[in-house]
Amino acid sequence: MKRWSKVIGISLAVALFVSALSGCVKQASEDEGTIAKIKKQGKVIAGVKYDLNLFGLKDPATGQVQGLDIDIAKQVAKKVLGDENAIEFMEVTSKTRIPMLKNGDIDMIVATMTISEERKKEIDFSDVYFTAGQSLLVPADSPLNSIKDLTKDSKVLTAKGSTSAKNVREAAPDAQILEFENYAEAFTALKAGQGSALTTDNALLYGMAQQDNNFRVLDETFTEEPYGIGIRKGDKEFAELLNDTLKELKDSGEYAQIYEKWIGKKPI
């Protein structure tokens, strides 16, 4: 008990010291609709990922962000302002995207975000624009073709802190799960022969397979992760516009082109 209070004491001392140093948080409140805001700005501000190959990846050489999310976001700018380049991209992470949207820093989130009931309490979503799901990345010559092929001798690599480990444990209870610090480390370990497969959303896996063609992604997914565009809660007008945009893209065949450009095959 004594040692205990020491630990707390130290933590609090550090906490006080540090909080004195940290700055204040930016506050913003937007009463107008997003479409009006976009027209006033003359551009759409989209929160996208900068570190996810195929969806939102910033090229350090050119400074350009590219990917499926980016192409979808540009179509929104085209719909609202008539110019697909009337758009500004801001980097978001899974942690920052919802607060940034609520603060008004960004107008929409196009960042591989799964539509979930929990998130719907905070924000609204457009219709699904990409159906991702957890799958396996395996060496091109691997005999594995399904999650069911995993045995107790299979080592499946993944990253800590994700739901991937939990999902694969349920889908293949016999397999050994090794959890690394991040997917980059897990992928390097897979390349070095430390495991038989790597598991996470196929959206990430396609990116890895594209980087190194000694690996392939299984067609099968064992979870379903529908991606939607995130917008501020209650903005029905903007939601309708997004859904119209997505529908037009699908009807005209432009969506299929974007999909094939990044994923390397036609949408199912």
Binding site: T188, A189, A192, G193
Partner: peptide, 10 residues
């Protein structure tokens, strides 16, 4: 040990 050793020695 994690990455280099398997590459060098298998």
């Amino acid at each position: 040990v994690l990455v280099g050793l398997p590459l060098l020695t298998g």
